[in-house]
């Protein structure tokens, strides 16, 4: 499966956790986060979806941000994982693991003949 378009409700459920995971790799900015999510096979994430997620993560204290000047460009906003963010990432990743295993377990059960 290449260039996937996953159901919107799945993306809404997991995107914020995935963004947190990308930011955990070191300070990074919006466009690079979107590119990393694309590389991971999550499809193309638009700015209109990504920045409100980052805003929410920042409001929750899970990431912090700072602006850095670009070469003649409008600059980049870098996001960094906070201590609380690292904690939340660990907890939610574990939960997500269990959740997806259970869902996959159910989905792979052969259906009863009608």
């Amino acid at each position: 499966m290449t260039d996937e378009r996953w159901p919107g409700e799945w993306m809404r459920g997991v995107l914020s956790l995935c963004v947190l995971r990308v930011v955990a790799d070191g300070p990074t900015y919006g466009y690079a986060i979107a590119a990393r999510l694309g590389e991971a096979g999550l499809g193309s994430v638009k700015g209109g979806t990504l920045y409100p997620i980052l805003t929410r993560l920042e409001a929750e204290g899970l990431v912090s941000s700072s602006w850095e000047a670009g070469d003649g460009g409008p600059g980049r906003k870098f996001f960094t994982l906070t201590g609380n963010g690292a904690e939340a990432l660990r907890e939610r990743s574990e939960q997500w693991q269990v959740f997806t295993e259970r869902a996959a377990g159910l989905l792979s059960t052969p259906s009863l003949p009608v």
């Binding site: 900015y29 919006g30 466009y31 638009k46 700015g47 209109g48 920045y51 602006w67 670009g70 460009g73 409008p74 600059g75 980049r76 906003k77």
Partner: peptide, 18 residues
């Protein structure tokens, strides 16, 4: 500022990105 920075980076129009 986020919008300005993002569209400068991607070359998208604000309307298509946001």
């Amino acid at each position: 500022a986020e919008v300005e920075s993002h569209v400068a980076e991607t070359g998208e129009r604000p309307r298509e990105a946001f």
